[in-house]
């Protein structure tokens, strides 16, 4: 296996209306086993993927938003959410699922996985990636 690569998963689409968000998450979960340097980006309508309170019972689809909470257990803990995208949609960090991970190097302290970044910071994160997965 070659050196570790910086993988960036870019999520720009809302959930349920199309399957892209759900199948993107499936890639992230499988990819976690490959021990690469993984980051997730949520921008534009992608921020809707990780909002609280999703209830899919009446549309009989899978509520996969709960799966995002498991990402920390897979060592996927660099989750970048764009401030401008939240602002444009009248959302704040409080509207998002509390995604966290436990740091084994810090006595399993629970830490937030989500980092809210500006569009300019997001642009740098994208450019510094080795591979960008878009769905």
């Amino acid at each position: 296996m070659p050196e570790t690569k910086k993988f960036l998963y870019v999520n720009r689409k809302a959930p349920y209306g199309t399957i892209y968000a759900q199948e993107a998450l499936e890639v992230v979960l499988i990819g976690a086993a490959f021990e690469q340097d993984v980051s997730l980006a949520f921008l534009d309508d992608g921020v809707y993927q990780i909002t609280k309170g999703q209830n899919t019972k009446e549309v009989s689809m899978k509520n996969f938003s709960l799966t995002y909470k498991a990402l920390g257990d897979y060592d996927v803990n660099k989750i970048y959410v764009e401030q401008e995208s939240l602002d444009a949609r009248g959302l704040t960090l409080d509207d998002l699922l509390p995604l966290a991970w436990e740091d084994e190097d810090d006595d399993w302290a629970k830490k937030d996985s989500i980092k809210v970044v500006s569009a300019a910071e997001m642009a740098k994160i994208m450019e510094q990636s080795d591979i960008v997965f878009s769905f």
């Binding site: 921008l43 534009d44 569009a119 997001m122 642009a123 740098k124 994208m126 450019e127 510094q128």
Partner: peptide, 28 residues
Amino acid sequence: MSQLHTVNKSPLERNTLESAIAHAIKGN
């Protein structure tokens, strides 16, 4: 590092082009 962005949507229908430009760094 340098980046290539591809856009396949009409800018009159979606914000894809605007978003790509907003996230392109000088030299991209």
